[in-house]
Design a protein around this nucleic acid. Structure first.
Lengths: 194, 194, 194, 194
DNA sequence: CATGAATGAGGGTTCATTCAT
DNA sequence: GATGAATGAACCCTCATTCAT
């Protein structure tokens, strides 16, 4: 009894999308491949999802839960708040390697779907908002609630760290190497030593 | 006399690709649209380019020259080396706004083409290498050749700045806002104040 | 109510292939013509056949059944085993005339598809194997199980007759005349009179 | 100095056609491949040949000279007229093996071009006529001018041998084996032992 | 004599979606 | 809830041929 067939059709479809949309890209993945790998009839697909775009939304939501889960797991055993931040970069490195440097599912979709006013792009923003909140919480733990001596407060620093994280991901994706993540980590270290 | 029709077929095709591949994406843009907007017969396209992918290579090379030109223009009137770096961020803001926050043509293509061992992805790497060199030259001017007091040398800092720039571009693209570029600029200021 | 439209799409496609692939040739017949004469949408074709080559396989199998049916019909009313063989040549003549001397569907395809290790060429071989078996059975009936006085046994003679039949078909096809079939029949008569 | 480039354009084109039309087939070989392998510009091709079909005619004529040359060479050292006939079958075997069992260039073209009233098909017939004449001459040498005891004269027997040769070629082509040529030879032996 | 650019028509194939059952 | 058949539009690419130079 395979892992896929013991689930219902809808779950199999989403699981397949999680794999194919991420690895091959959204546009490069056809409905035919999805239904074929999901072992689902074509019409069955359309009883569960009104369109390919609807599946994409579902994909992004599932991916969000998955990835944020990985992220949170990676810090939950760290007592020290600074260690949490370093754990984030450690996670990024492991994740990029494990995913064959495919990069961020959400930024990738944003590249494929230029139109901003779409539900897809909205999901991307929601994901990045939560990533920012997550990072800001850690920064807040590190810095305390008081602003730094040179006038930089938590939200400012958090945004810089967030930008570093994004740059680390896309640069690592481009080069198939992890040094950008290490550079970002070093930069974060400096920025927080204020 | 339109700007396009006074050129020859090949140039019209590349110009159209510069527009469409960037705005709509590589996969979302069909050969049919390209030849129709280039006012060129289908077979004419294929006398100039062996495949859509070959045009993509040409597109990336033309885009590289174009964008690096913009980048270099933006700093050439700055005498001070620090001002050059701030001019870079100024350029990024203007560019993102003017391009409707479509982001980096090269990173977008890298998202659409997951396979690393392709000529396309190679062009992306080459572009980013030159961007890194450009930034490193400015950092070198700023820092001088001597390493910073806390042991960070030019290449290290340059990589951090590069990662910040990448993060600024993709985050700005995602949010359709310029604050990530400003955050990156602030972070760069701190990193270079060592 | 036309003969074609009362059947389902798949049958209409195969029927059309039976006609066009045979009359015009495999390469000279495009998918567009097939779907147009089958009254079928292009995508419908590809729900039934993964490729043009797959239809070709189907065509060869259908043609095999058809042609072997004609061949067997032509001898089934002959009591005498020698008469059966002469009936074969009689059939060849009628068939070549009725088919406008287009010749053997299988040999024609073999001429169009040089690569031997293809499923298409394999179907050709299978057809010719069965034709050989059919002829050998008749030869066996004629000669009995005992070898001829000059040492030629059934399989040897059967192969000669088979080669004669092939030569009769292609020579008749080339000249648009039936005399090669008559020459082959005469030769067979001599070979079996041993 | 390669063998091809020392010749003029026209010869290079015909040489390329001799190779490609034979190996790949007429329809499967495009003008582009021919001009590319001939190292000739497209327009140069059309200054020498009004159409692809015209090149095909030229190809068939060149092939005719080539193949008949091989055939005649194979018998010219045989003193005995019977040995000449056996030499023909010996040649067929060597030729089929050397040509990778691609078979008769003329019959192959006849399969690809069903329309009988074409110059192409006419060239095929002319070639086969000469092959028949060649065989008949040998048969005549063997049998003398007097008819056989059972009333078969030279033209009759020659046609049978011709049909056997055709069958030997196409059957050998189909199976990628030489036994049909040997079967034809054995049959010829019997037919001539009258 | 030779040429690269240009062409309309068509090649085989896949797209996301809808339908009747 | 699930299905296979059917679809029009579009996919990338190649065909044999002609043209201006």
């Amino acid at each position: 009894m395979s892992r896929k067939t013991e689930k219902n059709a809808r779950n199999r479809i989403v699981d397949t999308a999680l794999d194919l949309f991420y690895r091959q890209g959204y546009l490069a993945t056809g409905i035919n491949q999805i239904i074929s790998e999901s072992q689902v009839a074509k019409a069955t697909f359309y009883t569960h999802f009104p369109s390919k775009e609807a599946l994409c939304i579902e994909y992004l939501r599932a991916r969000h839960i998955l990835w944020m889960g990985w992220l949170k797991e990676s810090v939950e055993n760290e007592g020290n708040s600074r260690d949490k931040l370093w754990a984030v970069f450690g996670f990024l490195k492991r994740w990029m390697i494990d995913s064959n440097f495919r990069g961020c599912a959400f930024l990738n979709i944003a590249s494929e779907v230029p139109s901003v006013e779409t539900e897809i792009r909205n999901e991307v923003k929601k994901h990045k908002n939560e990533l920012q909140r997550f990072l800001q919480n850690i920064i807040e733990e590190i810095m305390g609630s008081n602003a730094s001596s040179i006038g930089l407060d938590v939200p400012h620093i958090a945004k810089m760290i967030y930008v570093l994280v994004e740059g680390a991901i896309v640069a690592s994706q481009n080069y198939n190497e992890t040094w950008p993540i290490e550079s970002a980590q070093e930069a974060a270290k400096i920025l927080l030593m204020l």
